[in-house]
C-alpha cells in the first residue's frame, strides 16, 4: 500500500517547517524529496523514520522495517566496514557483504577501520549497510554527498540494481540524481508540497 501523509505540521518555535503537508509515497517506487535548503526535507524524512514527532497530522501505512542512509554517515567508527554492514543484518553471508562492498569500490577497505576511511568511502559503507539491512522501506538523505562524479555513477548503478520493488524515499538537491534513478519528485516549499 502507498504511504499517505495527511496534514503534517511541524514547527520549531516560531519557525513553521511543515504546514499541513499532504503527499503520497508510492509503494515500491523511488520518491525524491527536493527543494531549497531549510525547507524541511530532512525534518519530513525524520518524521517518516520515526526519529522526530510531528506536531499534528498522520502518516498512514508506514512499514515497520526501515533502513536508512542518514545525512551524516552514523557509522561505528572503531569497527571495520565489514562489521558495520554485518551488524545491520546478522543473517548475511560474509561473501555477500564483501561482494557488495566490492561493487561500490571498497574491495580494499573491507576490513579497514571506518575511522581511517575517507568521507566518500564512509558514505559508501553507509549505503551498503542500508541496502543490505532487512527493510520494507529505505530512506536516503543525500546518499551521494561527498562522492566524485565517477563514483556517483557506480553508486547510482548499484542503488538501482538493489532497490527493485523497494519503497525508497530520498532527499536530494540534484534533479539529475532524481532523473538517473527514475524517481517521482515531491518538491517542498514553504512547508508544503508544491509539485
Amino acid at each position: 500500500m502507498d504511504i499517505i501523509i495527511k496534514d503534517l505540521c511541524k514547527s520549531y518555535g516560531e519557525n513553521t517547517v511543515l504546514d499541513s503537508l499532504n503527499a503520497v509515497i508510492g509503494k515500491g517506487k523511488i520518491t525524491c524529496l527536493m527543494g531549497p535548503s531549510g525547507e524541511g526535507k530532512t525534518t519530513l524524512m525524520n518524521i517518516l523514520m520515526g526519529i522526530e514527532k510531528a506536531d499534528s497530522g498522520a502518516v498512514e501505512n508506514m512499514p515497520q522495517n526501515k533502513s536508512a542512509v542518514f545525512q551524516e554517515d552514523r557509522l561505528c567508527e572503531s569497527f571495520s566496514a565489514f562489521t558495520n554492514v554485518k551488524i545491520a543484518n546478522d543473517s548475511l553471508a560474509d561473501d555477500t557483504i564483501i561482494s557488495h562492498l566490492e561493487q561500490v569500490g571498497l574491495g580494499d577497505a573491507v576490513y579497514q577501520q571506518v575511522s581511517t576511511l575517507s568521507g566518500g568511502q564512509k558514505r559508501r559503507v553507509a549505503l551498503v549497510r542500508a541496502l543490505l539491512a532487512e527493510k520494507d522501506i529505505l530512506f536516503l538523505d543525500e546518499p551521494f554527498k561527498g562522492l566524485d562524479e565517477d563514483t556517483k555513477k557506480i553508486v547510482t548503478g548499484y542503488l538501482l540494481n538493489n532497490t527493485a520493488d523497494t519503497t525508497v524515499v530520498m532527499v536530494t538537491h540534484d534533479i539529475d540524481e532524481a532523473s538517473a534513478l527514475g524517481a517521482d519528485v515531491l518538491y517542498l516549499k514553504d512547508g508544503k508540497i508544491t509539485l
Binding site: 520515526g50 526519529i51 533502513s67 536508512a68 552514523r74 561505528c76 551488524i87
Partner: peptide
C-alpha cells in the same frame, strides 16, 4: 544520540 537513533532504525539489540 544520532548513533543511538541509527541503532533504533536498524533494530539493534541491547547487546549490539
Amino acid at each position: 544520540t544520532k548513533l543511538l537513533q541509527m541503532a533504533d532504525i536498524f533494530r539493534f539489540s541491547f547487546k549490539k
